[in-house]
Nucleic acid binder design. Structure first.
Lengths: 130, 130
DNA sequence: CGGTATCCTGTACGATACTG
DNA sequence: CAGTATCGTACAGGATACCG
């Protein structure tokens, strides 16, 4: 019912074309687009609106310039993120979610709900329950 | 508003304790628990009910025994998956989602919806639109 | 059947330096 | 400001073999 792919050590891009990927279980397909690295974090940061490259960097302190660039390029290729270059000096580049990217909002909010529910439990377990 | 962690080359487990992780943005926290590797795929496969080790292997053809074991152990530690050992010969071990793990159902279904919506578009783009 | 142990490799990712 | 280029490394992950 549901074949698989390499999420991370991803053998996928090379060994599997878009046609083949499309045969996959939708969940697996989604994970193949969002799996690993910083993708979900970047998408998360763009949910509330466009951000400049530098703003994203500051929002994600531990990401390196290189990784941010690579992640954004991949998200762009996958039609999840838009790159808007303002032809000014100094350079100004804004990243935003495409419609496809916006479609991830419910994923992100479910994820947030889950995270909140679970770490809330833990933090309250010792201190208080109310 | 939202610090960061290493999703994948994850430096996190060593350099960050549960307390610190809890300070994180819920989304980032969630990603830290589910990011990288095969975790989401395994959770996905357990959504419909418990599965034995071997059944999981067959459901996820590309995963190695080692990776499946490691993934299950991590999910177990994180309280997402239950491991039930039946003391029989030959061995019988069943994996199921805990309540916390069940909480991921909406994440998985959102993810599925998103995947379906997007690869459906692509497959229909050439063939048909109706 | 459901693992663990050992060894090895690919590549994700980081650090640093440079540029339009 | 927003990148690219280069180099090095740690670790995710694979392959194989063996075990209770």
């Amino acid at each position: 019912m549901c074949d698989n792919i390499h999420i991370h050590g991803l053998k996928m891009p090379e060994s599997m074309d878009e046609e083949t990927r499309s045969q996959l279980c939708p969940v697996v397909y989604a994970v193949s687009k969002l799996g690993g690295k910083w993708k979900l974090i970047v998408v998360h940061n763009l949910i509330d609106g466009p951000l400049r490259f530098g703003e994203l960097r500051r929002a994600i302190p531990d990401i390196t310039q290189r990784m941010l660039t690579l992640t954004l390029r991949e998200l762009e290729e996958d039609g999840i993120v838009n790159r808007h270059v303002f032809e000014v000096v100094p350079p100004h580049v804004e990243y935003s979610l495409t419609e496809v990217g916006q479609g991830l909002e419910s994923v992100m909010s479910s994820l947030g709900d889950w995270g909140r529910a679970n770490f809330a439990q833990k933090r309250n377990a010792v201190a208080q329950t109310a």
